[in-house]
Design a protein around this nucleic acid. Sequence first.
RNA 1: GCGCCCGUAGCUCAGGGGAUAGAGCGCCGGCCUCCGGAGCCGGAAGCGCAGGUUCGAUUCCUGCCGGGCGCACCA
Length: 561
Amino acid sequence: MGGIVEEISSGLARALARALESARESGAIKVDEAPDFNVEVPREKDHGDFAANLAMLLARPARMSPRKLAEILVNNFSLAGTWVERVEIAGAGFINFYLRPMWVYQVLPRIISLQDDYGRVNAGGGKKVQVEFVSANPTGLLHMGNARGAALGDSIASILDYAGYNVTREFYINDAGNQIENFGLSLEARYMQILGMDAQIPEEGYHGEDLAETARGFVDRHGDALLRAGAGERRAALVEYALSEKMGAIKRVLEDFGVHYDVWFSERALHESGAVRDTLNYLRERDFVYESEDALWFKASDFGAEKDEVVVRSNGIPTYFASDIAYHRNKFQRGFDWVIDIWGADHHGHVSRMKGAMAAVGNDPAALEIVIMQLVRLYKGGELVRMSKRSGQFVTLEELMEEVGRDAARYFFVMRGSDSHLDFDLDLAKAETNDNPVYYIQYAHARICSILRQAGEQGIKPPDPAATDFSVLIEESEFALARKLADFPVEVASAAKGLAPQRIARYAHELAGLLHSFYNSHRVITAGRALSDARLVLVDATRITLRNALRLLGLTAPERM
RNA sequence: GCGCCCGUAGCUCAGGGGAUAGAGCGCCGGCCUCCGGAGCCGGAAGCGCAGGUUCGAUUCCUGCCGGGCGCACCA
């Protein structure tokens, strides 16, 4: 499940535990229980293929020096049935295992047979997890923050799926509440203006030109009949029209970006079903809310937040926080074991009260995980591109894709951790040079495809991996490449654990580098048949692994460039 | 002022209790009769400061300094 690296390190851990057992039985080491040690891959090659810290952890309870303990453990350690060639004691008491190089080539036939599934692990055990991301206001276009959220959320979802979780991707449509009121008022003003009347967009409204276009589209289709309708009816009709237009555009752009949702969840439905009211009643019954200055407040400070928060305004309208509580309660009612929200950094103040609210409605706040992503800055020609709705210098996801392409955009958004600021270099992203990591990785993939094509043209049949002799792969760069391939499942598990797609981005880049490096020093299709076959399997396994990594990031793996 | 996030190479960033801290860009110097040079090889250069926990701290904790964001009956 975790791949051969995991199998071998846990095998070594078990063997070491047995060594400790026999040392305890013979009285050579006196401890009450075995410590929780680990077998890990040392940074330094000189320190072996795997290393254990057991002796250092035993030092205190056993009252012996780590090196002495390591010696006893090694003497009790059986090499039978392992790949271990030799064991050394080094440093402060590390036990270093040196394996026969062939251990790593086991991975090649496995990759070829698993194909698209190579790298899948079962860390999640089928647990139901929901990833909610983007959830942009349906009142405008998708901006850079939404775009980063889309790339991050979708990759996180893909990685979790690959790591054995049952994943649902969800978009929450904010089609209710105060902002929709403002949206309606703004649309109404635009509508009146187009029909030659004097109307003002409210201060708090939406002043973008796009709403004028929307209103014009409405007039083109439906004329001026709404002038004679009541204000409420007029706004409702305009909002209905505009929402479906805007949401349609958002869905289209996200599809183009390669993001597919399982659920589009409407805030309005939450009000209409009574879920918001029920949730407020639930809180009232338990005295988790109180009235003050005609408004209803949630006692967030009783649940670890800094201050209390209004859930129903003095005008009787629930705040977005009220619907958000109902929404998140609903998520848990739907049976998700783990709920992940991806929010922009400007919403981080909302985290503690949201978790507090979950505790208040009887859910485990720890099951709600909020990924906060820092903001995006665009650079072009070395200059910061100012983005603001006010200045109109508003770069949309659609414009970005036109500018740099979908693959580059997605890669750049996930190559950094979510909690680090992202400087997006537009020139670099669209450069078709080796400076551009996206091309570098895709080029490695295309290059392998080209080699495999060549082999086919020369009449070389794809070798049977099970019958291939990998002992001819004696070059440093061959071992390094295969070793990296063996790491993929480990990377997937760790990317899933840390909700960290940048690990996969990085992995793909490093794997591509090792391929290029190998390629430049050795020929795949070469004189000896045995060597050619082994290398063909090696590069084919690399192709599969690269493609799988790219898929987790939502990027294509081109066969030609 | 309070809260959250971040200070790692000249720049942009990975890493994250272990033994000699990585990558890309930029800079300097090399490699195409050969499967795709959109490539490869080599070089210089770094954990903000001070304490603490630990056999071991760049990693965890505290304080300070510096930066971002937030602190609405907006979302």
